[in-house]
């Protein structure tokens, strides 16, 4: 019975992949953008590291790996759930999701997973190739870190998704949440270590960042990948990441239950 229920979502996932492959050209802009960010920041870091001294234990090679993996991760962390909810609420199409024998957030999650699956081929691989050819091949620090990176990346995906979903659910009450979604996007960009690693910030600022969920989206998996963090320190960080995941999950469950009762179908 449980498995049968899952197969419904599996087909929604599959349909989303088919859908994503029908618009071929819209996704290539992101490759260009990520490549530009990757290449310009490679120039930037090479210039900064000209003296050759590692900063906070990270040398230039580690830093270059960092930016390539960060660009690749950004593809896995693309969410559409916030826009999907906003659109459905604004246009009233949420009715179409609510009348199906499925959990609407389950639909949104597998739709995002479907889009990402399509993007692995359309975006992630091209970015990997561009980075490998023009910057360097981003190899992981040690094979032991592969499972740790995978676990941390998985948690990072869900933290990111739940934050997006929470922002999206604002539209159940505020209807127009465009600005809020923009704020969220930039918060994650700047405070997660996706562009500037937090070890370049002063201690007090870093302490604040470590208390927020954003660094557990990019910085932690990246640290694991380049071997910046290991042992007890790493275990501690992953614990905090897990705690954030649980906190966001509880917040999501609470808000989702209240929000769906508030559904107001516009028009008609």
């Amino acid at each position: 019975m449980k498995l049968k229920g899952l197969s419904k979502y599996l087909y929604v996932y599959k349909t989303q992949i088919i859908r994503c492959f029908t618009y071929k050209f819209e996704v290539y802009g992101n490759i260009l953008m990520q490549s530009i960010i990757m290449i310009t920041s490679a120039f930037f870091w090479r210039a900064l590291y000209r003296t050759g001294n590692p900063v906070a234990g990270v040398d230039v090679e580690g830093m270059l790996t960092y930016i390539i993996i960060s660009a690749m991760m950004s593809v896995l962390l693309i969410t559409n759930v916030e826009r999907r909810i906003e659109n459905s609420v604004q246009k009233g199409t949420i009715a179409m999701d609510m009348m199906k024998p499925l959990n609407i957030f389950g639909i949104y999650l597998v739709e995002d997973l479907g889009s990402i699956t399509a993007l692995v081929f359309q975006n992630l691989l091209p970015i990997f190739l561009v980075g490998s050819l023009l910057v360097k091949v981003p190899t992981i620090c040690s094979t032991e870190h592969i499972p740790l990176f995978a676990i941390s990346m998985l948690m990072s995906f869900f933290i990111n998704w739940l934050i997006a979903a929470l922002f999206g659910m604002w539209s159940f009450t505020a209807v127009n949440v465009d600005a809020l979604i923009q704020v969220k996007k930039h918060l994650i960009r700047l405070l997660s270590g996706s562009i500037i690693p937090m070890w370049f910030f002063p201690d007090w600022f870093r302490n604040i960042l470590e208390a927020l969920p954003f660094v557990y989206i990019y910085q932690l998996p990246l640290d694991i990948y380049i071997g910046k963090s290991s042992g007890d320190e790493l275990a501690g960080m992953m614990m905090i990441q897990f705690v954030w995941l649980i906190i966001l999950l509880i917040a999501f469950a609470y808000v989702a239950r209240r929000a769906t009762k508030k559904v107001l179908v516009q028009g008609g």
């Binding site: 049968k4 087909y11 349909t15 859908r19 029908t22 618009y23 179409m96 009348m99």
Partner: peptide
């Protein structure tokens, strides 16, 4: 309003519903 998927063939939407409703 429509519950059909604008981007896909009609049959694809039906196939999706076939799975959703088992």
């Amino acid at each position: 309003r429509t519950q059909l998927n604008w981007d896909l063939r009609l049959g694809e939407s039906f196939e999706l519903l076939r799975h959703i409703y088992q």
